[in-house]
Amino acid sequence: MTSVNSKEGSKEEYSFVYGDEAVPYEVVRKPHLEAKKRKITIKVHPNCEVVVTSPEDAERENIHQAVMKRAKWIYEALKEFRGHLEYVQPKQYVSGEMQFYLGRRYVLKIVEDKEALPSVKMTRGKLLVTLTRFNDNKTAMVRALVRNWYKIQAERIFHERLSELLPQATWVDGIPSFRVLPMSKQWGSCSAKGNLMLNPHLIKAPKECIDYVILHELCHIAEHNHSERFWRLLTSVMPHWKEVKSKLDGMAELYLNE
């Protein structure tokens, strides 16, 4: 294993060689607070992007060594995500396609009913979309109806789960506000003021995955970064979070697929 480095402008892009493959990765540097421990973290995204986050003053050699120590793990994670990508095709929004809701699979069925209003509902293992009539805008109409249906379900279920989980988050005062907003690489986020943002695609995952993301973001109200204290706090409210996170990561590409 060797490394190959290159830099274009202010964007740092490098790669390392594992076996006979060059694996590219991006380095994101962040300001380092004196009171916080210096740490280099590595994340492999479901779209097969490898991102390394490091203190802004970290030496390139130290970053390289951190990556090389986890080279095998990076390669295996990429291999797993690539396996998922082979089966993921862009949604066409036609009858017979697979949709997910709360971890279960449903078959999309589209029907025409001139007497009915456009609607979406679940029935007998199917996600049934009714259109008043089929025309050239059929695909766009189905996509819009399905997306809106997911958003409505997400707002309802996320509110229920947040209310259920709040008693565990004893460090949170009051009820945090949250918004449902599509994100390409995050399931959720927490602002400095403690406002939560949750990805509507998360509604496709099992409830325990939804709980993990909500608890993760609630922990950020107390600990704003991924420090050791943050992980200890998360473990205290969800001891098996690693298994749940792994389950969510493994299905991410399918859940996020539109």
Rank of each mutant, 00 (worst) to 15 (best):
R133Y: 15
E26M: 13
V17K: 15
V67W: 05
R124M: 08
L256G: 03
K39C: 02
Y150E: 04
I74F: 05
L234S: 02
T170G: 14
H45L: 15
E61L: 00
L33H: 12
W171H: 00
E86Q: 15
H159I: 07
Y255W: 05
E160G: 07
K91N: 09
E34R: 12
R29G: 05
K7W: 13
V120F: 04
K207W: 00
C190F: 00
P24T: 13
S95Y: 02
A154L: 06
K126Y: 10
S95R: 05
W231M: 01
R232K: 12
F158K: 04
K109R: 11
S95E: 06
M122W: 08
E208M: 03
E253G: 04
K7N: 15
R161T: 07
Q186T: 03
L166D: 11
Q89Y: 13
V88K: 02
M251L: 03
R70V: 11
M1W: 13
P182K: 11
W231E: 08
E34M: 12
E34I: 06
I214G: 01
S95D: 05
A71D: 10
G194E: 05
T2M: 12
K193Y: 15
D211G: 02
K151H: 15
K245F: 01
I221S: 03
A144K: 05
T130P: 06
L196N: 01
K79Q: 12
L254P: 03
S95W: 06
A192S: 14
K114P: 10
P118M: 08
E164P: 07
K109Q: 12
L102R: 14
D57T: 09
C190G: 10
D211S: 01
A22Y: 13
